[in-house]
Computed example of a mutant assay.
Amino acid sequence: MTSATPTLPPFSASKYIKEIGRGVNGARALPREDAQVLFDAMLAGRVSDIELGAVLMAYRIKGEAPHELAGMLEAAHGHCAPLAAPPDKPVVVIPSYNGARKQPNLVPLLALLLAREGVPTLVHGSREFDGRVTSMQLFEALGVPLCATPQAAQDQLRAVANPLAVLPIDVLSPALSRLLDKRPIIGLRNSSHTIVKMLQPVGSHTPAEALRLYSYTHPEYRETLTDYFSHEPANVLLARGTEGEVVADARRSSRIDWLHDGHQRTMVDPASGSIGEVPELPPGTDVGQTAAWIRKVLDGDVPVPAPIATQVATIQDCLKQATRVAWASPV
């Protein structure tokens, strides 16, 4: 006779819903500690379906305050599979949760270019999303296997050649994956869609262990993110991405800011508008054509789009500067 798996006690969210569920004008932000406790309970499956739906809708209407995001992120890290950091190099962490609608999803190209240069690179994301072409689908089309376990991801990040780990979110954090899966039920995104892109799942989740890539679609959101990452422990490259993905738009140059140790530094401040030579890109909705085009770029038959080449160089520059600072710091 086997013993039953113990279940966690239910968690009452009513007192939190009273604060966050009063509408646009009446809702109040939770203290950071309360946001962490609530999100932890949600991830642990301790909140009833009715209360969970109420919390998700309340935050959809109210929005998350920066300190609430910090508490939620801390809770989310507690529900991620532990990934040991490589011993000598920080990891570049690339979230990929939007996929391609019109423009091709070139996240795999960015990751493969970095790994080819010996940069440990972790891509985490959804296998499928709204019928769009996801990075996971493209990696498989390119012959890059998805990591089936956290241990496999650790081993890939420590590889001497091409240290690239591609980790689906349902392997990295089944708890976060379950919250992401609420979207088709409710019909709207929820807080987990924001938090999952902010994850630093490597080691002890410190800025020294990983450089995270983060993107925005609206200029005003850049200011919000800059404020957030300036007040939280961060090592983040922030740039305008492509349809919600963190890869640079191949058709135009983009500003890139480095946020670390409470400082902001603009690494790339280009002229506005399109680049001189806009590359001929494959249709974004075709997995096969996008994968074939990426292969041509990797083989040198098609040049790397200038904005993506700049993004790769900027990432390498930040990693080198961070390493020099780490070596120069007193023990």
Score class of each variant (00 low, 15 high):
Arg101Asn: 12
Pro303Trp: 06
Met198Asp: 04
Ala159Lys: 08
Pro330Arg: 15
Glu245Ile: 12
His77Gln: 13
Pro6Phe: 11
Met1Gly: 03
Pro282Trp: 06
Arg189Thr: 14
Pro104Lys: 06
Ala165Glu: 01
Cys147Thr: 01
Asn235Val: 05
Ser254Gly: 08
Ser254Leu: 10
Leu114Thr: 03
Val268Gln: 10
Ser12Cys: 10
Asp155Phe: 04
Ala328Gly: 05
Met1Phe: 11
Glu209Leu: 00
Arg324Pro: 00
Thr242Arg: 03
Ala159Gln: 05
Tyr59Ala: 01
Glu277Pro: 02
Asn25Ser: 12
Lys89Met: 02
Ala54Phe: 06
Ile20Ala: 03
Gln151Ile: 12
Val24Ile: 11
Met1Trp: 11
Val287Thr: 05
Val91Phe: 07
Leu319Gln: 03
His124Phe: 09
Gly244Gln: 02
Leu8Pro: 05
Val92Ala: 00
Thr285Asn: 14
Ser204Cys: 09
Gly53Pro: 00
Glu128Phe: 14
Gln311Trp: 10
Lys182Ser: 07
Glu64Leu: 15
His205Thr: 01
Asn190Val: 01
Ile308Phe: 03
Pro283Tyr: 11
Glu51Ala: 05
Asp130Glu: 13
Met42Cys: 15
Ile308His: 02
Ala239Asn: 05
Gln156Ile: 00
Leu172Arg: 01
Phe11Ile: 14
Lys102His: 13
Thr242Gly: 05
Ala41Tyr: 05
Thr5Ser: 14
Thr149Ala: 13
Leu52Phe: 05
Asn105Tyr: 02
Asp317Pro: 00
